[in-house]
Design a protein around this nucleic acid. Structure first.
Lengths: 369, 369
DNA sequence: CTGAAAGCGCTTACAG
DNA sequence: CTGAAAGCGCTTACAG
């Protein structure tokens, strides 16, 4: 007994329908129902008839038609690279900010996914097909040539772009300062041998975090040691692999005092491997992450991290984009073109403590996992 | 030196523009560029001219116009309640499935947020304004009256609906069986005093998990003990509060052997409070969650959980919705109306071990946090 | 095989 | 204050 078939797949009522019922033209109906500023007011009694008809029919303006007529969809696109097929904590935080601000400004968010930046970047123009008014690019791997590729009829805002592009506002945070402050904080706690699980060096964010790490050590008079910098990706398993690899290459050497990870997920992987090998965080070794994403609060012990205001940054991206959209229609609307930089902040949690008086040593054999 | 102003905010080229350059009508251009099945083929040389003109201009079909003409947007809406303003792990997993399937079927996903189901449910009709072809409702709190509220011209698919509505396909999973199997598994490991941090009783999912818990205990001949069932929400802090409250009310009593939490975030909060109070998971007490979300893999130790195939369920929602959208246009397209139920599965991780030979006791005073 | 008309549902601008 | 026209950019269906 299917329950569906008794539901009539009606078409939605239109202005013409409303006009017919109210005995006026569709235009008159438009004026009272949808128009933002129809100076020519409709006579009160006509108006009442129209409103009654609309209510009776359950009329709603057709968004596609309105969009076509006004060339404004009230939809902003969000393009994101899904590494390994998964949207992650980073995106979730940013997106929370985007949809919150979008809802507050009566916009909707449409999500576009790229599986690989370099392969899919050429699809960007086809996303700008009139169904969105502007696009937020999350973590674009821009090269200068991309400037020519972006369609001119759509405004773009980038979040954590790898490269500045003319005409594209970039929202970022002072990652280098964040990393610097975190490492100084670790040193202040007494740590000196600080392992850095660093992101890929072709990524601007990873470069900045590494620079902050190096500068902080230098400023504290700690000699930089390349064996304490390990390349890794951004996922939990990347963190596991990197930590395992480092331990395997350092058998019988003293454990580092602390590990500074390029992001929280890597820190989680790192803590996991440390636990597997019998080390206690933070008693034997301290661990810190970056981003202060949800993952930082779901570990036991909770993770000390550098907070990026991802949510605010997502909201700021919407604001900047809306300003640029409006600016296109009305050049009097003010806009910024320069990058918008958010401050970072250290969030102290339980994963960092002063180092033990005598460091434990890396065992001869590492758990394979 | 703003770099923006030198970018001309061009309008996008149209079929008319292409036709003008190629010396043909816009209709001819449409036939070669956009038409899916124009039986009347354009002459090869005309065709070539049109293609060349389109390439030269960088022509892309305007999505809003096409949508209006075909009454098909290729956009599916995803409406979700943001509890406490945040999209969570549950949504992230579901959404991963949605966008993966959407990308595979050339659809886009537009996200609509409701802050409170009961207050905002009446906004649903205004979302169905021709910019989406159908809507996925994530976790709707349906009551029978809602059937009248949903606009008839848009198909809906629900995920984890609280109540079946005629004409709305529901995607769910066998949560009761999942809970049942998990509790039996705990009993098989030797646990008998099993605390349940249960979700709100007005939520169907919480009811099902509680029923599974009760049935499993009954089948194992363990007397049900109401002091071992505690009401809680779904977030990390809810889990913390619930666990703290239970401990505070059970001072000097033996610690439960295990805690079965209504979801993973609650389990994380629970583990956190246990750690605060000096209890080790799983040595002193075992903990299990539900959902197998990302959070289950970011705890140390990792969390045993009941896996819901949220990602697949999200993908299935897209499939079901697309079928119903097509069915509206062409009744020959087959559709299901009944609920689609996914199996659950126990994922064993490190947070569950047989109970210690002698249970520790709850201390007289609990850490306030 | 190709052209010109009519329409999707709305809005803007121009007459009365 | 109200009506009828023209247009947003596309597609479908109907003539040639």
């Amino acid at each position: 007994m299917p329950s569906g078939p008794n539901r009539k797949p009606d078409r939605a009522p239109t202005l013409a329908d409303v006009g017919r019922v109210a005995g006026v033209s569709a235009v008159a109906a438009s004026a009272v129902l949808n128009s933002s500023r129809t100076s020519s007011r409709i006579a009160p009694k006509t108006r009442a008839r129209i409103l009654a008809a609309a209510a009776q029919l359950g009329y709603r303006a057709n968004g596609a038609a309105r969009a076509l007529a006004k060339s404004r969809m009230n939809v902003i696109g969000v393009a994101v690279v899904v590494r390994g097929g998964d949207l992650d904590h980073y995106f979730l935080e940013v997106f929370n900010g985007v949809i919150e601000k979008a809802a507050a400004t009566d916009q909707n968010a449409m999500v576009f996914t790229l599986h690989d930046w370099h392969a899919d970047v050429q699809r960007l123009p086809e996303f700008c097909d009139g169904r969105i008014d502007g696009m937020i690019l999350v973590g674009p791997l821009f090269t200068p040539e991309h400037a020519a590729l972006l369609p001119r009829h759509t405004p773009f805002v980038a979040l954590h772009a790898n490269h500045d592009l003319p005409g594209v506002v970039n929202i970022e945070s002072d990652e280098e300062i964040g990393a610097y402050n975190l490492v100084r904080y670790l040193v202040d706690q007494g740590h000196r041998r600080i392992l850095h699980l660093a992101g890929h060096e072709h990524l601007l964010g990873a470069q900045r975090r590494l620079r902050g790490y190096r500068r902080a050590l230098a400023d504290c008079g700690i000699k930089s040691d390349d064996s304490l910098v390990v390349d890794t990706g951004y996922d939990l398993d990347d963190g596991r692999r990197a930590m395992r690899k480092w331990l395997a290459g350092a058998s019988r050497q003293p454990l580092p005092h602390a590990v500074f990870c390029v992001n929280d997920m890597v820190a989680v992987g790192c803590m996991d491997v440390l636990a597997e090998n019998g080390f206690k965080v933070p008693d034997d070794i301290s661990v810190a992450g970056f981003d202060d994403s949800l993952a930082a609060r779901t570990t036991v012990p909770q993770l000390t991290s550098v907070r990026q205001q991802l949510r605010k940054m997502g909201a700021a991206a919407v604001d900047a984009l809306l300003a640029h959209i409006d600016h296109r229609k009305n050049p009097a609307v003010p806009v910024t073109w320069g990058p918008i930089v958010f401050p970072t902040e250290i969030v102290q949690r339980a994963s960092v403590l002063p180092p033990p008086s005598t460091s434990r040593r890396v065992p001869a054999t590492i758990v394979a996992g």
